[in-house]
Design a protein around this nucleic acid. Structure first.
Lengths: 240, 240
DNA sequence: CGATCGTTTTTTGTATACAATTGGGAGGGT
DNA sequence: ACCCTCCCAATTGTATACAAAAAACGATCG
């Protein structure tokens, strides 16, 4: 359903509009098309998407609570701007994602043996694809990122309850902002990631809850470390 | 203009109204004065607080995203109801709080030695009060809960970044809903808590990040366990 | 030339009218 | 009595007019 069709008065379940605005804006932010630090003006967004300010406000409030948008600190009144990308924020964010997915992995390793087995199979398969893609001469960054994301989403969806799922859905895409900025500089480190994924799969298969959680948390701590180094070398790309 | 004439008191910074509505509703939910499962109607709330639906909507959307309010699953359309209290939800929630505060404790233990020392002193003092209050003949449940809350808030505020702080502020009060329901039945277990707090203080003072995190997570895992038993014995109080 | 004050413009907060969807209830049929 | 249908009332989604507050601009004065 394209934008053109939307303006052409297609009914569309009515409660879906704020969600669409949210998705659209989030996508623009995650992909960097809305630069960090840039203002987001309700009326502009509303005009561009040909809706009123009401659904736009709903979307903006959600994005703000999740952290994609912040109130510009320099200004006094609430003036929403795209959240800047900084080294400290990256550190905090990655550690939080690590804890969220770590908890999910712990629960995954605590599932009944049958489910656990099936899940481990699936994870191994994804990680295999991941390894093969990484071994190619010119690895496709996008595809690599997608496979990594799929790997983690796998056990999260299998084991997390509604609350952890919600948290994951809100927080993880923000890590994506950093990952997308620096993927090209992180590919060298990917072989490490393949090994770390292997440890996760083994722990889940064995039903070792502590090992599963630890493996996931470690994976993210290392990712934060690697990203920190890259940012040090390149400078903070997202700073206006 | 009824809003301007409302309770004709302080002008009140105008951006503060949604926040006030949010606080008011959250308080009612946490204290159980809005029963789990009961409907929350925009127009009713607006009328009771003599504001328009606009700030009420903002507050409701926030409460919904945080999990205090859910869309009644039976109904098809979005119909906000106070989130029910169930054993599974309690389990998930407590484990999540454990991870959040656990991460904060890890960072607290990683602070410079000077700050760490001061923080440890403060924590020890609070835990002392906690112990003394618990040792009284007729312990004041409310005060006990407040002291426990203060203890944890202490190191969270000292070490957490803006993101973890936000998460903590949104998630922890939901655990409070369960704690308030069952405090009277959990007092026996409080001596255990005092000991667990001691372990946290020692780990932070020593700068042992792993031990600090582990102690906090364990504290919450045990709390989840204890609460689970109580719920088994008493039945789910919050189910309508 | 710079600074301070007042005016205009931009942007968000609020209230409210209206639309749309849905649950419930009245009424009739079997 | 039970069920089915249709209509109404209740409630939320949307658009929009208006108010308030702040930022940007400019003019006047030192």
């Amino acid at each position: 359903m394209s934008a053109a069709a939307r303006t052409a008065s297609v009914p569309e379940r009515r409660a879906a509009r704020p969600e669409q605005v949210y998705q659209k804006l989030r996508d623009l932010i995650v992909r960097g098309q809305l630069a960090p630090g840039s203002r987001v003006v309700e009326t502009d967004v509303a005009a561009r998407l040909s809706v009123s300010r009401t659904p736009v406000r709903a979307a903006l409030q959600r994005l703000q609570q999740e952290g994609f948008i912040v109130d510009s600190p320099a200004l006094q009144q609430s003036r929403p701007t795209v959240a800047p990308l900084t080294k400290e924020d990256a550190r905090e964010l990655f550690h939080i994602v690590g804890e969220i997915e770590g908890l999910a992995a712990r629960w995954a390793a605590g599932l009944p043996a049958a489910e656990r087995g099936r899940l481990a199979e699936e994870l191994a398969a994804v990680n295999d694809q991941f390894r093969r893609t990484a071994d190619a001469k010119h690895p496709n960054h996008n595809r690599l990122w997608e496979l990594d994301e799929k790997f983690h989403r796998c056990y999260v969806e299998a084991a997390a309850g509604p609350r952890l799922l919600g948290l994951h859905g809100a927080v993880k895409p923000q890590a994506e902002r950093y990952e997308r900025l620096y993927v090209s500089l992180l590919t060298r480190e990917i072989t490490t990631s393949v090994a770390e994924h292997g440890a996760i799969v083994r722990a889940i298969r064995a039903g070792n809850v502590d090992a599963a959680q630890f493996a996931v948390v470690t994976n993210w701590r290392n990712a934060a470390e690697r990203l920190g180094h890259v940012i040090d070398n390149v400078g903070e790309r997202g700073r206006w």
